[in-house]
Design a protein around this nucleic acid. Structure first.
Length: 267
DNA sequence: ATGGTGGCAGAGCCA
């Protein structure tokens, strides 16, 4: 079984590329982030025509997460329990469309789009940290309740856990950029303390191994990217992993997402 | 090449 995660940065703008990739990638499950659409605009037929079931959670032009599967799609859950809400400028806080789960082929798949902190002192940063902390505590409960649970936390984490996960750590430090700060890394590493593991890194060692390249500044041609898309697996799922890859080729050419798909192979 | 991002509710906003 092959499972993958991909921040597509608009599913409608990327429909042809996503369909082409689905056909040649041969993945059984695809966790998608940033569909950037509401259910009413979602390209359901793209998946149905290729024999995938799909579940989507999106209610505005922002965020949006989905799971496509050809090995079953059961017990769909939109948002995680206690998922922090965010209200900009005093607006009523809402639980954003950043998390959807489904059980596919016996694996509990979570497609996650972790909030972008925007800036170290921005109000989005504590939101990001509490979002991760809440999810981690919940995920820890899942493992405690069932040590054999096969859980995949897949998506765009908007964190670069290691210095080598960005193209120039000094550039990030000197400019006070997000994704590499200690609080963000602590929030990510807390999942490792909960016994989730990054099952992709061992098969895709750095340095200079990335999953995202900014559209600006010719970042992709210059090889200046970031590793911010991860699959964290519960112990029982991690034990099944036989391989992983990052499809850097998919970042090439006109109409590419700024993120590459990340694939995990299960035995 | 004095520019050089790309989505979205089409204008700012978001990443």
């Amino acid at each position: 079984m092959k499972i993958a995660t991909w921040n597509v940065n608009s599913l409608r703008a990327r429909a042809d590329r996503v369909e082409d990739w689905l056909r040649r990638s041969d993945v059984d499950v695809l966790a998608i982030q940033e569909t950037k659409c509401k259910d009413e605009n979602f390209p359901w037929e793209l998946f149905e025509n290729n024999d995938y079931e799909v579940a989507h959670f999106g209610f505005s032009q922002w965020n949006g997460v989905a799971i496509a599967s050809r090995v079953g799609l059961d017990d769909v859950e939109r948002t995680f329990e206690g998922q922090p809400a965010f209200g900009k400028g005093g607006k009523d806080p809402v639980q954003e469309a950043r998390a959807i789960a489904a059980t596919c082929g016996g694996v509990r798949i979570w497609s996650l789009y972790v909030p972008n902190g925007r800036a170290l002192a921005d109000e989005h940063m504590p939101y990001k940290l509490s979002w991760l902390d809440t999810l981690n505590k919940l995920a820890g409960q899942w493992i405690t309740e069932n040590p054999e649970a096969q859980i995949a936390l897949m998506g765009d984490w908007n964190i670069a856990p290691l210095d080598e996960d960005v193209w120039d750590i000094d550039f990030f430090r000197d400019n006070g950029m997000t994704h590499v700060s200690a609080p963000e890394r602590d929030a990510f590493n807390a999942f490792l303390e909960t016994r989730f593991t990054d099952v992709v890194r061992p098969y895709t060692p750095g340095p200079k191994t990335y999953t995202y390249w900014d559209y600006t500044q010719l970042r992709f041609p210059k090889g200046e990217g970031m590793r911010i898309d991860f699959t964290l697996a519960s112990p029982a799922l991690a034990a099944r992993v036989t391989g992983a890859s990052i499809d850097r080729e998919e970042r090439k050419g006109k109409g590419a997402s700024d993120h590459a798909p990340v694939i995990v192979e299960l035995g």
